[in-house]
Design a protein around this nucleic acid. Structure first.
Length: 542
DNA sequence: CCTTAAGTTGAGAAT
DNA sequence: AATTCTCAACTTAAG
């Protein structure tokens, strides 16, 4: 790793570039930078205005790329990182602009000899990092870019599988084995960080507040239990892991998606997304608990199994060109999804008329987080279950609004839920009525996030359109006036979706992975004709 | 290529 | 009320 170039370099300063990995503990890039620095160390975070600053044209409060909840979470994380660094004798230098451009200017201005940053497998960072690394190598700057965001190096797993990512969880597990770093305990503390040097002509900012970024709305929904930052991450993890029996018995599919004041899961995902919590440290802590208990659950359902899912999707995403698209994605079924903007808008804006679906979408807007199974319900409903809208549209909404939205995991799950890849049992459709009911028969979750329905009797809370008008009136919620009628009939729509999926699957199989635009177009035409025929038949029968 | 085994988390009925 | 069974039925990844 040590390069002779750096020893002979006239420059002695180092730059630690933070992007994800917003933490002090188990941060190999920071450790390396701190340990090897013989001059000043500049810890940098670059605010990209396109990601952070308000965009009035955006569909909901936030920037063009991120909802305000995730921006808040990121700012909190940065402020916490700054105070962590200050405790160690340093601070966080915030700069603004296009990250690649800004970083290269810093490297020049500060005469940096060593650049450290966490390796990242997302396409955005792959392109950005190549630019920066090319500059660094031409300028004789040593770079150190370790893999520490995930448990494994996706490239390594793919290489061990003959160049292709494993596409089933079980084969991933077999291939992955025990992570190489897990042989010895992680280094989770740092004694000190060398001080920052002269910043020259670079304009340095403090970590901004939302208001300073130009947001008026700074109120966070009461109850949203998530504050950004490493401190909150570690507290939250310790709290979750303090109950060893809970950890040992954890089975994700048995969690209650309607629990909101006390979620059924750890809610560590946003911290893992930004790297406020090291996935490796989390892994180590879980293993320590497993050693202490007689028996524990196993992947895929166990708590450790959840962490492995993340790596599974990171690996699949890294090894699949166009992972975030249907077209040009070799593992994605080609399906003639509809582009009905009105159905999409109804879903996005929580007015499908199905309270269980709409309540989940409200929670997404207000909290930026929902339980995993709740995400399944709305994703299934939008795509293969009811509305037959393209999974990429739903993906975009999640990507914007979730505080934990993570490129690989989010796209992977949309591929999964839409039966486009990984999972193919399109007959198994989440009912927007009965699924939530079995966890929350009284509808407390709906009453909380859709207060317009708070006085609807529990008999009708999942299907308020079935309530007699007298009851609707008494509940002060007349369907069609105070709350919408269902945008589709679930029974009819889901049958229709099943049929369309079956036909699309048949075409994909017949054409064996080479479905052209023309093929898709003619399939779409055929499906529409069939639907019309079917409608005529139903009318005749009546 | 062909065969085989397996698939995180459905719904509804029956016990 | 909670658990287990049955249903109808697939598909694909892996080997």
């Amino acid at each position: 790793m040590a390069s002779p170039a750096s020893a002979s370099s006239s420059s002695s300063s180092s730059l630690m570039w933070f992007r994800k990995g917003l933490r002090i503990h188990d941060n190999p890039a920071l450790q390396h930078a701190a340990a090897r620095a013989c001059g000043p160390l500049y810890p940098v975070f670059v605010i990209d205005p396109r990601y952070m600053e308000p965009d009035r044209a955006a569909p909901s409060p936030g920037s063009s790329r991120a909802g305000v909840n995730r921006i808040r979470f990121l700012l909190e994380s940065l402020a916490d990182l700054d105070s962590g660094l200050r405790r160690l004798g340093s601070r966080l230098l915030v700069l603004k602009g296009e990250p690649g451009e800004v970083l290269i200017r810093c490297l020049e201005e500060w005469n940096v000899g060593r650049l450290c940053f966490e390796h990242d497998t997302e396409p955005y960072y792959q392109a950005l990092d190549k630019r920066v690394k090319d500059f660094a190598s031409a300028a004789g700057i040593e770079t150190f870019s370790p893999v520490s965001h995930t448990l494994y190096d996706p490239a390594d797993i793919i290489a061990r599988n003959g160049g292709k990512p494993p596409l089933s969880y079980q084969s991933f597990l077999k291939l992955a084995g025990k992570p190489s770093w897990a042989a010895s305990p992680l280094s989770t503390t740092l004694a000190s960080v060398p001080p920052v040097g002269d910043v020259g002509r670079c304009e340095i900012f403090e970590v901004p507040t939302l208001i300073e970024l130009g947001y008026n709305e700074t109120e966070q929904d009461e109850g949203a239990p998530f504050r950004g930052g490493e401190t909150a991450a570690l507290t939250r993890m310790k709290e979750a892991l303090s109950n060893k029996a809970w950890v040992a018995d954890f089975e994700k599919p048995k969690g209650d998606p309607s629990a909101f004041y006390k979620p059924a899961t750890t809610v560590l995902s946003p911290y893992l997304k930004f790297g406020c919590l090291s996935s490796r440290y989390f892994y180590q802590c879980i293993q320590d608990i497993y050693k202490d208990v007689k028996k524990h659950t196993s992947p895929p359902v166990s708590l450790l199994g959840q962490l492995l899912w993340r790596d599974f999707f990171y690996t699949a995403a890294f090894g699949t060109p166009n992972f975030d698209k249907m077209k040009g994605n070799r593992i994605c079924k080609q399906i003639p999804w509809s582009d009905d903007e009105q159905l999409l808008a109804a879903w996005r804006e929580a007015r499908t008329g199905y309270p269980w679906i709409d309540a989940i979408m409200v929670q997404l807007h207000k909290w930026g987080w929902m339980h995993h199974l709740a995400r399944h319900c709305v994703a299934c409903f939008l795509t293969r279950g009811d509305l037959f809208v393209h999974w990429e549209k739903g993906r975009d909404v999640f990507e914007r609004l979730l505080i934990d939205s993570d490129w690989a995991v989010n796209n992977g799950n949309w591929l999964w839920l839409s039966c486009s890849s990984f999972f193919y049992q399109y007959n198994r459709i989440y009912s927007p009525i009965t699924f939530g009911k079995k966890y929350d028969p009284n509808g407390n979750y709906i009453r909380h996030f859709l207060p317009v329905l708070k006085d609807m009797p529990k008999e009708y809370i999942y299907e308020p359109w079935k309530a007699p008008l007298s009851i609707q009136t008494k509940a002060k919620c007349v369907i069609g006036r105070d709350y919408p009628n269902p945008v589709v009939s679930h029974d009819m729509a889901s049958k229709e979706c099943r049929r369309k999926l079956a036909e699309a699957y048949a075409v994909n199989q017949r054409l064996n992975g080479t479905v052209s635009d023309e093929d898709l177009k003619s399939l779409r035409r055929k499906l529409e004709e069939d639907q019309e025929k079917e409608l005529r038949h139903t009318k005749q029968r009546r």
